[in-house]
């Protein structure tokens, strides 16, 4: 809004924006935690937070794309665990040492293929996305646990072990606490950068917004809606494959029972970041802030003296409040406008 005089800093903050609200909530949450447990304000906490955001952040970027396109995907954790476990198994059976990037490529390829399965049902047959991905989630997990394997692989291939040791930043605080950030964090940064360029500066990215805004209009002006949808689900699959292999390598174990169950928290993060379930809206900044908030909640409840068994309740409440308030405001505005 063009003002006559320069408004003060406070007046210029747009409190209606999701990002602003999220930043305020994150600051408030951090402040409360810091008051209760002063040890919270330290470099190790910060680096833990960043480290814990890697896998969830990559997942969230994928989910953001799906939500913008007007769909929802709950199968990505299944895709991730399938990719990571199958990759590890293949490399272990192979017995030949393979560099970490080759393992990554393999996992991403498997993830992409599984994403294309989603695309087949969603773009190909035009089925409702929630129900399709619920179905593929159980198929993928069922196949993994029945036919691929259901035992832990704790002796990871050399390449993945090496990757886990690649550290970007490391240091020790004055109190002697050790902190570090693995190079895996660069993967998140890379994914964010690539997706940002994709969404802002490519016709494909804008087409994703367009089909989320109005699929019928998109079809009419000649956007290849099915191709765009196919890309979206393949991209989510690829990101899930990447997130999965990073998770395994950082955890130093390939666990076929891992990750599934995390999908609700990831969707919560993205939705808290302002993406709308109806499609067409969502930002990377909001999504990352949403991830930070969820990770923050997960790590700081214990510091706050709340038993970790309450985690689920807090995340559920965040979803209801975080999406309920904007939904209610929108409804009231709509009512006012008649």
């Amino acid at each position: 809004m063009p003002g006559t005089s320069r408004p003060s800093l406070l007046a210029r903050i747009d409190f209606g924006r999701n990002e602003t609200l999220l930043v305020l909530v994150i600051l408030a949450f951090s402040a409360v935690t810091a008051l209760v447990a002063p040890s919270f304000l330290s470099l190790p906490t910060l680096f833990d937070l960043l480290r814990n955001s890697i896998v969830m952040g990559i997942f969230a970027i994928g989910v953001l794309l799906v939500l913008i396109s007007g769909g929802i995907d709950v199968s990505f954790t299944g895709i991730a665990v399938f990719s990571l476990y199958t990759t590890t198994l293949i490399l272990t059976r192979l017995g030949v040492p393979v560099p970490w990037w080759a393992a990554f490529l393999l996992s991403i390829a498997i993830g992409t293929a599984l994403g294309l399965v989603n695309a087949l049902f969603i773009a190909g047959f035009g089925l409702p996305t929630l129900i399709v991905t619920l179905g593929t989630l159980s198929v993928i997990r069922g196949v993994l646990l029945t036919f691929v394997g259901s035992t832990l692989i704790s002796n990871l291939p050399v390449g993945l072990k090496e990757f886990a040791r690649l550290v970007m930043i490391r240091g020790t605080t004055a109190e002697g606490y050790f902190f570090s950030l693995p190079w895996a964090f660069a993967a998140l940064v890379g994914v964010v950068a690539v997706t940002w360029v994709l969404l802002q500066y490519t016709t494909l990215g804008r087409s994703i917004f367009a089909i989320g805004g109005s699929p019928e209009s998109a079809r009419r002006i000649g956007i290849p809606v099915r191709a765009v949808q196919t890309f979206v689900y393949a991209y989510v699959g690829a990101l899930a494959g990447l997130a999965g292999i990073i998770h395994a390598s950082l955890a130093r174990v390939a666990n076929p029972f891992d990750l599934v169950g995390l999908e609700m928290s990831v969707i919560a993060a993205v939705v808290l970041g302002g993406a709308r379930l109806a499609g067409g809206y969502g930002t990377i900044t909001g999504t990352l802030l949403g991830v930070v908030l969820i990770v923050l909640v997960n790590t700081s409840l214990i510091l706050l003296g709340i038993p970790s068994t309450w985690q689920m309740v807090v995340i559920g409440a965040l979803i209801l409040v975080g999406t309920g308030v904007p939904a209610w405001q929108a409804r009231r505005t709509a009512l006012r406008a008649g």
């Binding site: 609700m264 969707i267 939705v271 985690q311 559920g316 979803i319 999406t323 309920g324 939904a327 209610w328």
Partner: peptide, 30 residues
């Protein structure tokens, strides 16, 4: 949440489902 606050049912019941399950975990300690 669905009728008054106009949340999409998927999100509303996803969130409330987490709360109900979470309360169950919290009450019993799992």
């Amino acid at each position: 949440t669905i009728g008054r606050f106009a949340l999409p049912p998927i999100l509303a019941t996803l969130g409330s489902g987490l709360i109900y399950t979470g309360l169950g975990v919290a009450i019993t300690g799992g």
